[in-house]
Amino acid sequence: MTAYPNPFTLAMRPQCGTPKASEEIMRLRFLVVDPNTQGDDCPAMQVNEETGDLAFVGETITDPDALTQLSASSGIKESETAILIPARMRKLILEALRELEDDPTIP
């Protein structure tokens, strides 16, 4: 697993429209990246250090049939994006989640 101890700050803005007056600032800790990464564009998982929420980076799912199936089971709001995480990352993600459970600094 590739872990990065130094968190970085990411300003969260609305997906469209004007930024809200009270923008939320997330402190994200980079947890794991796809080991087969060949550059900057790579599936990854991060955690919000203040809330414990997870953030994923992956390929956007654009297939209309797949999006219809996803919408039927859980719905997809306009502000949400369905992404694909490679199967080879399952074990890495589970390992990172187990480590988070033991981290007293993450809620």
Rank of each mutant, 00 (worst) to 15 (best):
S74C: 04
P19T: 02
S74W: 01
T68W: 04
V57L: 06
Q46E: 10
E101V: 14
M1T: 10
I61N: 09
L31K: 07
P86V: 04
E101C: 13
S73H: 11
F56S: 04
I76D: 09
M45Y: 02
F30D: 10
E24V: 07
G58A: 05
I76W: 08
M1D: 15
R29Y: 08
D103A: 03
T68N: 02
E49D: 06
T68Y: 00
A96L: 02
I83F: 03
T60N: 05
L97D: 06
L67I: 06
A72H: 04
N6S: 09
D63E: 08
T68S: 09
P14H: 06
T2C: 05
D34S: 06
M89F: 02
F30T: 00
S22T: 12
G58Q: 04
A96V: 09
R29W: 01
G17C: 10
V57S: 04
N48D: 15
I106V: 11
I25D: 12
I61P: 12
I76S: 10
R27W: 05
K20H: 12
G75I: 02
K77F: 01
A72N: 11
S74H: 12
L31Y: 07
G39L: 06
M12Q: 13
L31A: 01
E23M: 15
E101N: 15
V32H: 01
E95P: 12
A3M: 12
A44V: 03
E59I: 02
T2I: 09
A21E: 13
I25P: 15
P14Q: 05
S79H: 13
C42A: 04
